[in-house]
Structure formats: C-alpha cells, structure tokens
Amino acid sequence: MRASEGSAPPVNGADAMSCMPLSLHRFDEELRALSTELAARAQSVRAGATRAYGCHVCKVVRQALGLAFTAARHGDEEWAGLLIGEAVYYAEHGGHLADCPQGPVAPPKRRPPLEVHRSLTEWAGASLPLVAATDASWWKNVTGVGYVVSDGRWGMRGHKGSGRPLAGADPVVIGELHAVALLLEHADADVVLVDSMAALKFLRSWQSSGTAPMPCGYDARPTATEPAALVRLAERVAERPDLRFEHVKAHRGHPLNETADSLASIARRRATRRFDAVARAEGLVQAFLAAWHDQDDPHALAA
C-alpha cells in the first residue's frame, strides 16, 4: 500500500509541511528512532534531506521524510516504512536539478577519440616510390599518432588510455607501431620512415618471420570481433615483403618525419582539450609537403 492510500497517523504540522533541509544533527537524531533497516533506507536520501535547497524533487522527499519521522516517533513503524519508501522512490525517479547533490551521478564525460584522415589533392599524382612517415606522441597515458604520405594523404588519431599501461609496457614503442598500423589501414606506401629503432625491429621481424613477438606488456588478446591492432599490423606486414621500412632520425628537419611528429602531437593534445586540430594539422601538412617536394631529389632522403 502506498502512503497516499490510507490515513496517516497524527503528525506535527511543522514537520509535515517544512521544505527546509534538516541539519545533519537533526537528521541523525531522527534516524536513531528508526529500525536498522529503515534507517539504512533513509540514509540513502541523506543529501536530499540535508543539502538540496533549491531542488523541487527533494522538497517532496523532505516532506515524506518528515511524515516518516513523525510516524516513527508515534511508534508506527509500518507507516514510517511506507513514507520512507515514498521518499526513496521520488529521490530515485524524480527530475532533480542538474546540480542537486541527491540527483543521479552522471558518468564522467569522455571526449570521443579524435581520428582524422584527409588528402591534399595538389600532390595526388606524386611520382613513385610513395614515401610515408609515421610517428607517435605519448604523455601521461594520452597517446597521439600520425602519418603522412608523399602523395598528400595524411591522418592522425588521439585518445586517452583507459587505465595504466601494463607492467613493463613501453607505451612509446607501442604508439609508434600503432602509427604504422593507422597508415596501412587507411593509406599505402612503398617506403615507410620510422624514427624509433625499437619499433623498426618489430616491423622487420614481423616481415621476415611472422607475427611474433609482440612488444613487452602489449595485450595481444583479440577483441570480440577482431584480432588486436598490432596483431593485425603484424599479419599485414608479413604479407608485404615489398614494403620497405627505413629509419629516419627524429627532429633533424626531415619534412615527412616532422609532419608525422606534428600530427601525433596535435592529436595527443586534442584528446584532452578542445581546439581546431584539423585546421592546424592541415596547414602544417601543406607546408611540410611543399618543402618535401621542393627538394631537388626528395626520394634521396628515403633511399
């Protein structure tokens, strides 16, 4: 039976009609008059009873609690239980104000991962071989990866990690390999420039001997729908004996490496704060690719 379906016991009018929050001391005193079970149920609406000043839902909660406490003082445990049930029901199902402390706890907002793939048509007919560069940027569990191809294709992805890296894992090397995976999933090239010797060793090992080993600490378990990303990369690389992986020194002014490095950095920063990452990235790609193609023999740097 809901509390509204019968006659309530005699109540103190001030308790029944008051909409003001109770003091914490008063609330705790009222709980002592209840059974252990009812006190635990009433405790679940403590915030609405003691702190939610402007919330209209919590005003109803406080009215029901006031009646419940009065019923308990008169020895009517059954009515007290029904009224506490009413208070809990309204607290759980009512439309609280956005800042109400009794309202449902909103899940933390996670910025969706940034992933962008674009192409600058100015270099769509670039001469062969097609040269690509990849790079990664990692800081405090936030990763950005980027790639650029000499024919104008480029891309980047940034995301926050879901937890701490596994013990022994090297997130930088894993990120570098994810950058190559992003390239080969969305573009193609004849030569891939990588500035991490550790990542380069994995790529050449996969190309010559299959999908083992994986980087230390990398979780190679498949998802519900497909193999892990680096396992897919290893399989793809093993099927491409014609693909050349070459080392390029980082931060030495190589236009393609500088492009990939900038894209990875932009993607990483965009994962934690809002700015026009695509416009900034596109301008950098335009400038660096122009510098690459303006060289007398750009392919000599990939030889």
Rank of each mutant, 00 (worst) to 15 (best):
R157P: 05
M214H: 10
L183D: 13
P104D: 12
R221P: 04
S127V: 08
L256V: 12
G163H: 13
M17D: 05
M17H: 09
A250M: 00
R270P: 02
E5P: 04
T272N: 10
H93W: 06
Y90C: 00
G125Y: 07
G144A: 09
C19T: 09
E115Q: 15
N12H: 14
A126Q: 06
A224I: 01
E239P: 03
H25W: 05
Y147P: 05
P215V: 14
E78V: 07
L128G: 04
A199P: 03
N12W: 01
V145E: 10
E37V: 02
L230R: 10
H251W: 06
A126H: 11
L256P: 10
Q295D: 10
F245S: 06
P107Q: 12
W139H: 11
A303D: 13
A250E: 11
A14R: 14
G95W: 06
T121H: 02
A224T: 13
E29H: 12
P255D: 11
V248I: 13
R270H: 12
P113H: 09
S119F: 05
G155K: 06
G152N: 00
D261S: 13
G210C: 10
G144R: 08
L34W: 12
T259L: 05
A52G: 01
H186Q: 11
E5R: 13
F69W: 14
A198Q: 15
C100F: 08
A303R: 15
W123T: 02
A179R: 06
A238Y: 11
P113R: 15
D76V: 13
V57C: 06
V105R: 15
E78L: 01
L182N: 09
F245M: 13
G155N: 06
L83W: 06
T50N: 10
A212Q: 10
L130A: 07
C216M: 11
R236P: 03
R236Q: 14
L284E: 14
A98E: 15
R164D: 15
S4Y: 12
H96T: 01
E258M: 05
F245V: 09
Y53I: 08
G175W: 03
Q207Y: 00
G168D: 13
W123L: 05
A71M: 07
C19M: 06
S137M: 03
G48N: 06
F245E: 05
V278Y: 03
V237W: 08
M17V: 07
D261H: 13
L128C: 00
C58K: 07
L182M: 14
F288W: 07
T211V: 11
D294K: 09
L97Q: 08
L65N: 06
R73M: 08
R268E: 03
L284F: 11
I84R: 05
A136F: 07
E5T: 07
E258D: 15
L166G: 02
A87C: 01
S4W: 13
Y89T: 08
A49T: 02
H299P: 02
P222R: 15
R118S: 12
G48M: 01
A98K: 14
D261V: 02
A42Y: 12
Y90P: 00
A187F: 03
A124W: 02
A169F: 12
P215K: 13
F202M: 09
G13L: 13
V57G: 07
P171F: 04
E86S: 14
A234L: 03
G161W: 12
E86C: 09
S209A: 15
